[in-house]
Design a protein around this nucleic acid. Structure first.
Length: 320
DNA sequence: AAATGTGGCAACCGCCTGCTA
DNA sequence: TTAGCAGGCGGTTGCCACATT
């Protein structure tokens, strides 16, 4: 594994660690504790640089490291957190006890990223890949009237639209802690607004996201209803309608798809109600049944959520 | 059976940040 | 204020194992 044995210009060894080196490092740290990595190799009798020792310890030798396959819960947590944090592997690792940032990074690049691509999702934005969608047929089949969609502003407080648009453009770059604080403030405002504007699906979407945030997760988690360790604190979910679909990318008539997660993937455990009063539900698009054991089964399960059809008789006016 | 391709992952590299004198 | 250092982080490399041809 890894690099072939070699030495750098200082005579320090590089490449794979031997069990003898591992033992030396473990024994030294058991006595003196980790840290002071620059002087550690000399004191421990290792021909390695401090950085190499630190990496070996933190990524492999640490006693609390969990080895082996990632569980479904872990995998979904990674996807959730990545949708919020991006490639902040250390931040993601901090929420997965026993897993290292390096391990999560490798797992993402070798498994999850490929799976998302196969599902037609962009692994960077977590949005459906537009290059794979025939949006014109989608719109014609549903008889959606663009002017009606744009008319959303007629019943949505412009202040709210502005708030949401601002959020959409900043949420992926903002410091998660700052985001948390800001969203707590937003939620107070939205909570009031949503009581007065029952028809606003955009508002509901925003409200729901903030509820998830406030109720459980340290970081803003816009795409999923948690079903793992956060589940106990999941707030009661109000009913929403299929018009959530596409609401974000048409804010103010602007297509903000590029930087935003579509609510399409936001269907996790949302109970939706169509115009005729029939209920239908989605599980998380990326959730996988615990009984599934193979990657193919997981793919199959997940991809089924991308195959729903919009009824011919569905009118946007009915939905709002 | 041998050659070639691909996946997986440990380890390295270079940059960045925070601390301290 | 600034320079030096230690440690942390994300991206990349390169080797091994396994699959495919």
């Amino acid at each position: 594994m890894g690099r072939s044995p070699s030495s750098d210009k200082n005579g320090l060894k590089k490449g794979p660690w031997t069990s003898e080196e591992d033992n030396k490092l473990i024994e030294y740290i058991q006595v003196h504790g980790p840290g002071n990595w620059r002087s550690l190799p000399k004191n421990a009798g290792l021909q390695r640089c401090g950085k190499s020792c630190r990496l070996r310890w933190t990524n492999y030798l640490r006693p609390d490291i969990k080895r082996g396959r990632f569980s479904f819960e872990e995998e979904e947590t990674i996807i959730q957190l990545h949708s919020v944090l991006g490639n902040k592997w250390s931040a993601i690792a901090a929420r997965l006890p026993g897993r290292t940032d390096n391990e999560i990074k490798n797992y993402w690049n070798t498994h999850i990223r490929k799976r998302l691509l196969r599902m037609g999702l962009d692994p960077v934005t977590h949005s459906p890949r537009l290059d794979l969608l025939d949006l014109s047929s989608l719109f014609s089949s549903t008889q959606l009237n663009l002017s009606s969609l744009l008319g959303l502003q007629a019943f949505v407080n412009p202040q709210v639209l502005s708030l949401i648009a601002t959020n959409l453009f900043t949420s992926h770059t903002e410091n998660p802690e700052m985001l948390l604080q800001r969203q707590l403030q937003e939620n107070q405002f939205l909570n009031t607004q949503i009581q007065n504007q029952e028809g606003s699906q955009v508002l509901f979407q925003k409200f729901q996201e903030n509820q998830i945030l406030n109720g459980s997760v340290e970081y803003h988690t816009p795409t999923f209803q948690p079903n793992n360790q956060f589940q106990n604190q999941t707030p009661e979910i109000p009913t929403c309608t299929p018009s959530n679909l596409g609401s974000y990318n048409l804010v103010n008539g602007q297509n903000v798809q590029e930087n935003v997660m579509l609510p399409l993937q936001n269907c996790g455990q949302i109970l939706q109600e169509n115009s005729s009063g029939q209920n239908f539900s989605f599980d998380s698009v990326l959730s996988t049944p615990l009984s599934s054991s193979t990657e193919d089964e997981r793919d199959s399960y997940c991809s089924n959520f991308m195959k729903f059809e919009i009824p011919e008789s569905l009118f946007f006016e009915d939905l709002v």
